[in-house]
Design a protein around this nucleic acid. Structure first.
Lengths: 209, 209
DNA sequence: GCAGAATTCAAACGATCGTTTGAGCATACG
DNA sequence: CGTATGCTCAAACGATCGTTTGAATTCTGC
């Protein structure tokens, strides 16, 4: 107990964000109350409105914290491609999928993927507009790459296949428990296997004749 | 005004179920209150608890009404196959997909698909158990067919691909607006095109090497 | 070490939630 | 006709919701 930060390793703000992520994943945005949330975080009820302004702003901040990192990783992986040869479909898909799978395997990242799946299911206009405004450019960049790699597809057909793939990936990453790791396989090797499976599934769905 | 059933074409029970479907799709199970719901249905607040017992039972009844018909159609379509030749993958997928797409194009069926997508996103144990108990046998029957048609896949691999396909289909059917019908194409022809697209996407995702 | 800003706290606000109640109305049956 | 029976209604119940308040506390810079 030398330092005063045994249980207070994180700030009030971060503890709220962590508890919010967990409870939003479990009970949804409406279902999780600020009283449950602040109790779980070990902070005062009023702290949410003090630090974030409102519950809705807290929801946005939960998304911002994870998606800023996730989309930065995705764009970095995409930019890393094509230095010596034109990027293949599998490589672009890897740039899109692997950062998400790595996030879902670190800390409470898997919980966030469930929050994200909820956001997709709720057709809440405010939330959709927030996501579109802040992270739409990432989807646009990947869509452009897909369009280049799949020139035989018309625009509506391409958009629609991307939507199907997005639905499959979000559903899969939020579900889990399904993809069990077998004995004798390291955590990292198993994740790489999963990435390859997802990539092949997505590639087959995108590029089939 | 000869008959007394101008605006009372449906019973109180059915009006509640209809309004519930719409509001659950728009605002979620928690977000839609019984007061909004009964006001929209034009019935008294207490009618929900009188006819269904509780809000949770009402939720289950909303699912039961649509899923009973949907799954009966799916099983009938599956049973209709294989009379003169072994069923192909595309035929089995059609038996699974076409009834869902027809439902989502009749009346408020599309709203129900959004309710279903919400139910998937919410990992509510009570609701999942209810769905598994009442409609698990349908999924089991289709899974057996897929296993027969895709013998090169191991059991976990197969389950996992089915999960991905289910996620994609649910996501797509609840989204909509994306799949626009072009001028000069009849409603029925467009639906058949969509079915074919979904089948090919699912077949590619399921059977790729 | 002290003023001033930043943060935490207990308590209360009005609003809305799901549910229950008991009287009132309708319809059906002897 | 009278009486059960099924249904609707307005009103109220206690609980819980997000938010606000103003005082108490902790932190910061001089």
């Amino acid at each position: 107990m030398s330092a005063s930060s045994v249980n207070t390793a994180s700030s009030t703000r971060d503890r709220i964000l962590g508890a919010a992520e967990q409870l939003f994943a479990q009970r949804g945005f409406d279902g999780a109350s600020l009283r449950q949330l602040t109790t779980a975080a070990g902070v005062n009820l009023a702290a949410v409105n003090y630090h974030f302004g409102s519950k809705e702003k807290l929801v946005e901040e939960v998304f911002r914290r994870r998606l800023d990192a996730l989309n930065a990783d995705r764009l970095a992986a995409l930019a890393r491609l094509g230095s010596d040869h034109p990027a293949t479909l599998e490589e672009v898909l890897a740039a899109y999928i692997r950062p998400a799978l790595e996030l879902s395997h670190e800390g409470n990242g898997a919980l966030f993927m469930r929050v994200l799946a909820r956001a997709f299911a709720e057709h809440d206009d405010t939330l959709r507009q927030f996501l579109s405004e802040n992270y739409g450019h990432v989807m646009r960049q990947f869509t452009a790459e897909f369009a280049r790699l799949l020139p035989h597809l018309g625009k509506p057909e391409l958009y629609w296949r991307i939507d199907l793939v997005t639905g499959a990936l979000t559903h899969a990453m939020s579900g889990f428990g399904m993809i069990q790791r077998k004995g004798g396989v390291s955590e990292q090797a198993h994740r790489e296997q999963t990435v390859q499976h997802l990539i092949r599934f997505a590639a087959a769905g995108l590029s089939h004749p």
